[in-house]
Design a protein around this nucleic acid. Structure first.
Length: 677
RNA sequence: GGCGAGGUAGCUCAGUUGGUUAGAGCGCAUGAUUCAUAAUCAUGAGGUCGGCGGUUCAACCCCGCCUCUCGCUACCA
């Protein structure tokens, strides 16, 4: 680890449109914090950077919906996020935000440098423009009728009714979300980062030079690189964000993914005048902690920006984690299926380390993992309390009972003490090696092995018997137990900072350096220990039950949500209705469309003719079970090519709230071609 | 369908360049123990290492096919 003179550690910027939950913590902030705390204990020069990502369209939409400004939205969540991180002990050297002036300046300068070097390519295209509001409309700002399902409230990028991804030009009767007016198409110019040109250097840098990256990270990069990169727009027609520093683009802002990672740099600038050595010196090790959804930005796009700006170093590693699930289901903000950090801090006051411990020991380092409250309780009660808390308590109580809390003078080491010394040394090196390789789960296990070793030591030497038989031996055993306690305070600090602090206070010593934590003289003989307190407390069933009930309520709310029906559509005339020609038809043949997950190719007898229809029902019906079934078919729908097969009509389906589809069939057999009206 | 990551004891996970009886923690069972928040310590039960085939003297590890989970992506009217 001596290859580098200093470290720049960044953690993904949380998006300031909601609070932080355990998924964010387990994936990014807990590991990043452990890493940063460890480096500090090793007396390394380290900056640990965080901040809120405050730009982008979703924030402007949320603001509009609530009738407030985007700034008010981000102010609100920035405060919540920042405070909860602080209370949770995430030890940022700075937690900044991208709506800061210094960030706007930094991002703007960054763009200018790339612009002046001629890195960008410029492209002009037609985009929707709201004349009344005098602004271009992002895809999310346009609504219209979905060309695929006819839903009237499809967005410019996606129809939420049918799930199709769309481009704004496809919408029928597009309207501006802002004014309701019909937008016009207007020419607009944008700047693109030519990732395609960087392909070969990226291949060299990642695929050849960084085989050491985690399998999931390396694999995903390889996948992107192998399938070919394309230029990516770095500007948008919006008014919330960092203004593009060009006269001809004064109504445009930088695309949020372009400005957000620059936020790491801005925050460092805000932190120290010396910021450049953390970003531009070859002797600095840059590490980005992120979740797997961010791999492409941090491994491909941001490094390309850094490299071509010219003066920056590239990340040495990007240890991305997978996702954490909650009680078997995906964590979801919109479904309120989450454990929110700010709520945890209120409901489990003073128990930050329990959550830190559970999230680290079960961190999704190699694959998605599951957080359950039962597991949370077990890990607290039978690991933190029973192993670590218990050993400390035993040591404290014995010392107070036999020597009034005064650390005794050791008599003579036996083979056992020599073993203890070498085992502690091994554990310490193992923790170091694992942290340096981003294996925090394994490192934490070794931390627990320290007090596990202590418990065994006490059981084997039986100091409660020695008091009657061999006091010299007793003094040695207690001395060693106290040293083990002090060592565990140091080596557990990155993982359990609150506990470490409490323990040091009990032992009444200052925080020693990491490298001293293999010497057995952190506390001198004759030193007086403070009174014993419990490091951890048992968590009873009722406390866990409350949390489980809380989640069940979320589930019930979601069920209720499912039962709410869509509002009635606008009134239509009878003439509108009878334009649709719906007939009873019988399915004659059915087969899966190759290379498509959802499609079945059907031959149906409509009474009028026998025709082919392609339908997206493969997830709900198997071909063989639907042959002979009577269904309703919209027969006069314009034909459409799907996967190269012409589909002549549409099978009418009932769609449940969970998205599952069911046929509409006549109660009794009915002649093919019967009209439905 | 394509790509990526996974599928190892009841649960959560390790398994280094293929080499004799596959490991850990928790949980479980039995025994020991009392300094300790019934916590601790010892011992043990429990796995055809997702399935099939191949390479090899030898495969959890390499190759092929299949299957399940997660993510990205394509296809639903």
């Amino acid at each position: 680890m001596n290859k580098f003179k200093r470290y720049t550690v960044t953690s993904a910027l949380p998006y300031a449109n909601g609070p932080v939950h355990i998924g964010h913590l387990a994936g990014v902030y807990v590991p990043a914090d452990i890493y940063a705390r460890y480096l500090r204990l090793k007396n390394q020069d380290v900056v640990f950077i965080g901040g809120s990502d405050e730009h982008g369209v979703p924030i402007t939409l949320k603001a509009r919906k609530e009738g407030v400004t985007p700034q008010q939205i981000v102010d609100r969540y920035h405060e919540i996020i920042k405070n909860s991180f602080k209370d949770f002990g995430i030890s940022f050297d700075i937690y900044s935000r991208t709506s800061n002036k210094i960030h706007h300046q930094t991002a703007s300068d960054f763009f200018t440098t790339l612009y002046n070097k001629g890195e960008f390519i410029e492209k002009t295209s037609m985009q929707f423009f709201d004349e009344a509001e005098n602004q271009f409309l992002a895809d999310r700002y346009i609504m219209g009728t979905c060309p695929k399902c006819g839903a009237e409230d499809a967005y410019g990028d996606q129809c939420e009714k049918c799930g199709s991804s769309l481009s704004a030009e496809e919408l029928i009767n597009p309207r501006s979300v802002i004014s309701g007016n019909k937008p016009i198409l207007k020419e607009t110019k944008h700047w693109f980062l030519p990732l395609d040109k960087y392909e070969s250097e990226l291949k060299q840098w990642i695929l050849k030079d960084h085989k050491d990256w985690k399998a999931n990270v390396y694999g995903q990069c390889k996948s992107w690189l192998d399938s070919g990169l394309f230029p990516r727009a770095v500007t948008r027609d919006l008014d919330w964000g960092v203004k593009v520093p060009l006269e001809e683009a004064k109504d445009k802002v930088l695309y949020v993914w372009f400005d957000a990672p620059i936020g790491y740099i801005s925050a460092t600038r805000e932190l120290t005048k010396d910021w450049e050595k953390y970003w531009k010196d070859k002797d600095t090790k840059l590490v980005h902690f992120i979740g797997k959804d961010n791999i492409v930005f941090h491994c491909i796009i941001f490094p390309s920006m850094l490299r071509h700006e010219g003066s920056y170093i590239l990340p040495d590693n990007v240890p991305a984690n997978e996702f954490l699930n909650l009680e078997g289901d995906k964590i979801s903000t919109s479904r309120n299926w989450a454990v929110w950090l700010h709520e945890y801090l209120e409901e489990f006051p003073g128990q930050q380390d329990v959550l830190r411990y559970v999230l680290c020991s079960n961190a999704p380092e190699t694959k998605d993992n599951d957080f359950t409250w039962k597991d949370f309780q077990t890990k607290n009660n039978s690991e933190l309390v029973a192993i670590m808390g218990n050993f400390i308590n035993r040591t404290m109580v014995l010392t107070h009972k036999y020597y009034n809390g005064i650390v005794p003078e050791p008599f003579k080491d036996t083979e056992y003490e020599k073993e203890i010394r070498s085992e502690i040394k091994r554990i310490k090196h193992s923790i170091e090696k694992n942290i340096e390789n981003y294996k925090f789960r394994e490192a934490l296990k070794e931390v627990m092995n320290i007090t596990r070793l202590g418990n065994k030591y006490l059981a084997d030497t039986e100091p409660w018997k020695l008091i009657k038989t061999d006091e010299d031996r007793l003094k040695t055993v207690l001395y060693y137990s106290i040293q083990i306690s002090a060592i565990s305070a140091v080596l557990s600090e990155p993982f359990l900072p609150f506990t470490a602090e409490k323990l040091l206070k009990m032992l009444d010593i200052d925080k020693p350096e990491w490298d001293k934590a293999e010497d057995f003289d952190l506390i001198k003989s004759g030193h007086k220990l403070n009174s014993a307190e419990l490091l951890f407390s048992l968590i009873e069933d009722d406390k866990i039950e409350i949390q489980i009930q809380k989640l069940l309520r979320s589930k019930e709310m979601n069920e209720l949500e499912k039962k709410t029906v869509l509002p009635q559509k606008d009134t239509i005339s009878y003439d509108d209705f009878i334009k649709q020609d719906i007939r009873i038809s019988t399915i004659l043949e059915a087969e899966k469309v190759p290379k498509a997950d959802k499609l079945l190719k059907l031959l149906v007898d409509t009474g009028i003719d026998k025709r082919t229809i392609v339908s997206g029902i493969a997830k709900y019906y198997r071909p063989e079970e639907i042959i002979g079934k009577q269904v309703c078919v919209l027969v006069n729908l314009a034909p459409r090519n799907l996967r190269g097969i012409e589909s002549n009509g549409m099978i009418l389906m009932a769609e449940d709230k969970d998205g599952s589809l069911k046929f509409i069939s006549p109660e009794n057999a009915c002649g093919n071609g019967s009209v439905i009206s």
